[in-house]
Simulated scan of single mutants.
Amino acid sequence: MKRKNRMITAGLVVLSSVIWFPLFFMAAQSLMGSTELIKNTGAVLAGTGGKARFTLLPQFPTLAPYVELLLDSPGFFVMFWNSCKQVFPILLGQLLIGMPAAWALARYKFRGRNVLMLLYMILMIMPFQVTMVSGYLVLKKFQILDTHFALILPGIFNTFPVFIMTKAFAGIPDSLMDAARIDGAGEFRVFTSIGIPMALPGIISAVILGFLECWNVIEQPMTFLKTKNLWPLSLYLPNITADKMNVSFAASIVMMLPAVFLFLWGQAYLEQGIAASGLKE
């Protein structure tokens, strides 16, 4: 039995190593100078011809790419703050709009509820390319194209967070709700004092998944934003020239850190929210 467990553990370690290997490779490339990086991967990334060489560890490690990125690249910080201006209002709006909507769908029975839930699911699985033209026309009608609101408003009304939080609210036992109402609590008090605390794993998982989606979004800003000074950080990497490939790898690492830290912080909540197992009577 112990031998079987060891074999399973070893297999899991190998699989996890394969998953993490691209990240290790990217981190190593970010510590290389331009000459060494072009020599190793220029045939693929810069079109220099010849064969690419696989090197996991840099021969001459240097922090020059990070220094150039953080001290000599003002465009990086402009796009970083653009991402913050766009992502955090979206998450706040999703909570303010999505939580009451999810609570109503999960806890109340009303005519058209199933149809509305089906509509939410259809919109959730529908790719951006399908709604791109109609969304562009609506934003143009409201005269908010090429502004931060062109990304913020559609993001606030995303249906995926509502779907996640609906499952979390639906798992709250009815007995708790009835007991609170018997004690004289109104519907708003029940929502704030019982609903939100009990569904916190689902709410946090919706925030984490929403952050990952909005932080890495590419198609929406490319479609709705024409002014480069409004672009988010996700569009910074495609605009780095081939002679600054090491800076590109450094930017990838820096851009990935907020998402990694947020994921590690909320991993337990994320697992509970996705499972949406709820509480049992």
Rank of each mutant, 00 (worst) to 15 (best):
M1S: 11
K2N: 10
K2T: 09
L12Q: 11
V13R: 11
S17R: 00
V18D: 07
M26D: 02
A28R: 00
Q29V: 06
S30C: 04
T35I: 14
E36K: 11
L37H: 05
K39E: 12
V44N: 13
A46K: 14
G47M: 13
R53M: 12
F54C: 04
L57D: 05
L57K: 06
L57S: 08
P58V: 01
T62K: 08
E68I: 05
L70C: 13
L71E: 14
F80P: 09
N82E: 00
Q86T: 15
V87S: 00
L91D: 00
G93F: 02
I97V: 14
W103Y: 15
A106T: 08
Y108R: 13
R111V: 12
R113T: 06
M117S: 14
M121C: 08
L123W: 12
L123D: 10
M126E: 10
F128G: 06
Q129V: 10
V133S: 12
L137C: 00
L139F: 05
Q143C: 01
Q143E: 13
F149H: 09
F149R: 07
A150I: 04
A150F: 03
L151V: 05
L153F: 11
P154Q: 09
P154F: 08
I156Q: 05
T159G: 09
V162S: 02
K167W: 00
A168P: 03
A170W: 06
A170P: 02
S175H: 09
S175Q: 10
A179P: 04
A180P: 08
R181I: 09
R181L: 10
I182Y: 04
I182W: 06
E187A: 08
G195V: 07
P197A: 04
M198K: 07
A199H: 09
A206I: 09
V207F: 05
L209E: 03
L212W: 01
N216D: 10
I218T: 12
E219L: 15
Q220L: 06
P221A: 02
M222Y: 07
T223M: 13
T223H: 03
K228A: 13
P232C: 01
P232N: 05
S234A: 15
S234C: 07
Y236G: 00
L237D: 00
I240W: 00
K244H: 14
V247K: 07
V247E: 13
A259I: 07
L262Y: 06
Y269G: 09
E271W: 03
E271P: 01
S277E: 11
G278S: 07
